[in-house]
């Protein structure tokens, strides 16, 4: 049996807290150590969960963006990029994708959501736009919830 990545990060963090932090007197070194401690807490939360989270988020994006295509609000340029996103998302659903591939695709999907939000606000008051806007907002809430543990409360506290 080998130690998990989380156990290894946790042990490293504990070693820094127990043996290194008490001996550091230089304020820049102490600040760097605090930053490293926060990054390790972030990684502890992110390493195990990021792959499945992105997989789920990309599937959610594919569904949300399909609704955008169906609404007719996506301009031609956006519609073809949505099609491309959905094809890539479908391809990555087969086998075991690398986290970096999921991350790249997620960026593409969220960029499209960002552009669609702008389009919805430009047509605010129109039923189709408001309906799509509600769907996009619901996706944003789900995305935020999925990422929450990586940043909150990890990054709360002294900033440097």
């Amino acid at each position: 049996m080998k130690p998990t990545v989380q156990q290894m990060i946790d042990a490293s963090q504990q070693a820094l807290r127990d043996y290194v932090a008490p001996t550091v007197t230089d304020q820049w070194a102490a600040s760097a150590l605090r930053s490293v401690d926060v990054i390790l807490s972030h990684l502890l939360a992110r390493v195990a969960g990021e792959g499945p989270m992105l997989f789920e988020d990309n599937a959610d994006l594919a569904e949300t963006l399909a609704a955008a295509s169906a609404s007719g609000l996506a301009a031609d340029g956006i519609a073809s990029r949505i099609d491309d996103f959905r094809t890539r998302q479908s391809d990555l659903s087969i086998g075991y994708p690398a986290v970096d591939q999921l991350l790249d695709l997620n960026l593409v999907g969220r960029t499209l959501v960002d552009e669609l939000l702008v389009a919805c606000h430009a047509r605010k008051g129109a039923a189709q736009a408001d309906d799509l806007h509600a769907r996009l907002r619901a996706y944003l809430d789900r995305h935020l919830e999925r990422e929450r543990a990586y940043f909150f409360p990890v990054y709360v506290g002294r900033p440097v």
Binding site: A32, S35, E147, V154, Y155, V160
Partner: peptide
């Protein structure tokens, strides 16, 4: 620098 990473990424996501 890690401080730049924490402010520019982690703090922003917070």
């Amino acid at each position: 620098r890690v401080s730049r990473l924490n402010l520019g990424f982690g703090r922003v996501k917070l």
